[in-house]
């Protein structure tokens, strides 16, 4: 199965990179841009074909390594390969 994992900063955690991106977009003339938050996108394949088991594994991966849950939230989508 294929997993698409999105990692985002929790609300309230300062994101200086997002702020810099917003500033650059404003400088390019995109004046309508408000708050910008930068995150990570990870796509990975798992050999597990049982969606329930695959989901449990993805969750463990996020908790143990892919996200730092002190500052980040994660979400995922699973798709049959």
């Amino acid at each position: 199965m294929k997993a698409r994992i999105t990692i985002t900063l929790k609300p309230g955690v300062l994101d200086p990179q997002g702020k810099a991106i917003a500033g650059a977009l404003h400088a390019l003339g995109f004046g309508q841009v408000g708050d910008v938050r930068q995150g990570k996108f990870i796509e990975l394949d798992v050999t597990e074909s049982d969606p329930k088991k695959a989901e449990a594994e993805i969750k463990r991966m996020c908790e143990q390594l892919l996200a730092n849950t002190i500052i980040e939230n994660y979400a995922y989508e699973l798709e049959a390969a």
């Binding site: 300062l14 200086p16 990179q17 810099a20 002190i70 500052i71």
Partner: peptide
């Protein structure tokens, strides 16, 4: 805690 990107980038 955690060490994040410097506020100045």
């Amino acid at each position: 805690g955690v060490l994040m990107r410097n506020a100045t980038l």
